[in-house]
Design a protein around this nucleic acid. Sequence first.
DNA 1: TAGTAGTGGGGTAATTGGGGGT
DNA 2: CATGTCCCAATTACCCCACTAC
Lengths: 68, 68
Amino acid sequence: MATRTPESEPLLTPAEVATMFRVDPKTVTRWAKAGKLSAIRTLGGHRRYRESEVRALLAGIPQQRTGD
Amino acid sequence: MATRTPESEPLLTPAEVATMFRVDPKTVTRWAKAGKLSAIRTLGGHRRYRESEVRALLAGIPQQRTGD
DNA sequence: TAGTAGTGGGGTAATTGGGGGT
DNA sequence: CATGTCCCAATTACCCCACTAC
């Protein structure tokens, strides 16, 4: 709790996703560029990722490559 | 900084597991291929291994042999 | 408003995957 | 059958600096 708690659509930061996949945050950014991850861009240009999609990817469930 | 803790299992890189077992990373890969180790694939195709499972194997705890 | 941490972008070295041979 | 080493191609990790997020 602290910081923010989006009730509608839980989004993860690049560092969050990177920790879950045991990779570098830059690698997660690369996945978004490659269209392997659906990325939501902030007004400043930073990316946010859907927790549901990340979890599905971790579970090995292939999804639609909506792209960046 | 968000004190966020996504419920994800700690993962190890092939090099990590190889060092723990004193074997070549290629050998760890073969273990994963043989189904002796649960491997989680990154979006790039690289494998990540569950730390809990690796530690269990190192402790000499036999895995569930499905069949046989 | 200021300050700290995180992120984006580009570029380069190290690791990993796959097949084949010992 | 299991492990270590060779090849090459792809992916990932760490370096810089400038900007965003909180």
